[in-house]
Design a protein around this nucleic acid. Structure first.
Ligand SMILES: [Mn+2]
Ligand SMILES: [Mn+2]
Ligand SMILES: [Mn+2]
Ligand SMILES: [Mn+2]
Lengths: 220, 220
DNA sequence: AATATTTTTTAGTCGAGGCTAAAAATTTAT
DNA sequence: ATAAATTTTTAGCCTCGACTAAAAAATATT
């Protein structure tokens, strides 16, 4: 069955919300991310339920079916592969690609996306460290930790970000924080939980708790 | 002003029709190419006229304004650049790319299309030999001739096709006819105007007038 | 347990971009 | 110059995906 841009966006957003909770997703939560009103969401949820892509009972919230999740994962796959393309091949910065990928993720061609995957050498993660589903819809397992949860004097590597807004990414860039940077927390200030962190063995810089929370790292 | 997919498709089609005539374009001609009904076209022409992209007076046919032509050329540029990408970088055949490019041509990012242009080494023509407008909207001058207009025993090179339907392209491929092929017309049959043509110095094969008409060549 | 607040759904509307059927204008044929 | 045929427009309707305002249900507070 064919999926419209609007339907794909809803499914993708329900998927994203489902990643961080086991509970059913509320109408309002969907409305916030789709940038629409709750009434519009209710309409769409009924439609998605009719097509068998979500389980939805009024007032009970919504949850993806297997088929719905499959579609969502294919949109996520396309979004992230196109982001890799834009950064690795087109020379964009990581804070410039999200909006363009929001458009490209709706291009419908199984053949194209698989050739693109190959062209990019089957990347496991996108420019923000987010995992890319393979063509069967399987996500690679990544066990990342928030920089804010790290103890002092442990070496680690920046593997991703938990938020990909342009302003946040630009801030990281200004601090010389990019994927692969070697980090070590030198000091944690109990007052505001800000941290002092050394980046690639340079002089430590200060980072707010808010920023540290959105930086994903792996140990070692 | 923002342009919808539908508007871009209409402008592109009016542009295409304008290439082969100096007269105003008829509602029916547009309807045929957009695969819609004349009544729908009338509606859209009124809308395009309101936005200043076409000159349109009822019953008089339609013609692009400068601004309308600029938009049409930018869509054509995107379409053809993406086709080059699909063939040269993704490994598609020339008969497989049109449908995908129909989608990609609507991706809105000036920055992306200019980076793509550079990535592809500023190609002058697409995989079907059609000229690609540069970022100022200037088309390279190509003076191609139809193979059906050629005299016997003149050497020439296949530079493009005047029709890019998949079946036609597949036929050419089966005949070993691709861009750059060296051709020489050995015989013209006055009965049905079919021709006998040698391809890359091999034994001559028969080609119908209909096919020859849609093959573009340059002399020498 | 009753009431106040918040969330969600319903009802009705809108614009975009299609459609069909009928009317009007234009073009072609007699 | 009429009449016939063709083309184009108008009128009215439809679906999709939004919206607002009002009603209903669920949840929180006293
Ligand atoms: Mn993104
Ligand atoms: Mn990303
Ligand atoms: Mn094409
Ligand atoms: Mn082409």
């Amino acid at each position: 069955m064919a999926t419209s841009f609007a339907e794909e966006n809803y499914l993708k957003i329900i998927y994203r919300l489902s990643e961080s909770t086991l509970e059913d997703i509320s109408t309002n939560a969907v409305a916030e991310l789709t940038q629409t009103k709750a009434a519009s969401v209710t309409d769409m949820l009924r439609k998605l339920a009719e097509k068998g892509w979500v389980n939805y009972q009024k007032y009970q919230g919504v949850r993806l079916t297997e088929e719905g999740e499959k579609i969502a994962l294919s949109v996520v796959r396309k979004h992230r592969l196109w982001e890799v393309f834009l950064v690795d091949k087109m020379g964009f910065n990581w804070d410039e690609v999200h909006e363009i990928a929001e458009q490209l993720e709706h291009i419908e061609s199984e053949a194209l996306i698989n050739k693109l995957d190959e062209f990019l050498d089957f990347p496991k993660t996108d420019p923000h460290g987010d995992p890319i589903p393979n063509k069967e819809g399987i996500l690679p397992e990544l066990s990342y930790v928030h920089l804010s949860d790290l103890k002092e004097n442990k070496a680690c590597v920046l593997m991703g970000v938990a938020k990909d807004s342009a302003v946040f990414l630009q801030l990281l860039t200004r601090l010389n924080l990019s994927l692969g940077a070697k980090l070590m927390v030198k000091e944690i200030n109990s007052f505001d939980r800000s941290i002092s962190v050394s980046i690639n063995d340079s002089e430590p810089v200060f980072i707010s708790h808010e920023v540290a929370k959105n930086i994903l790292i792996k140990l070692g």
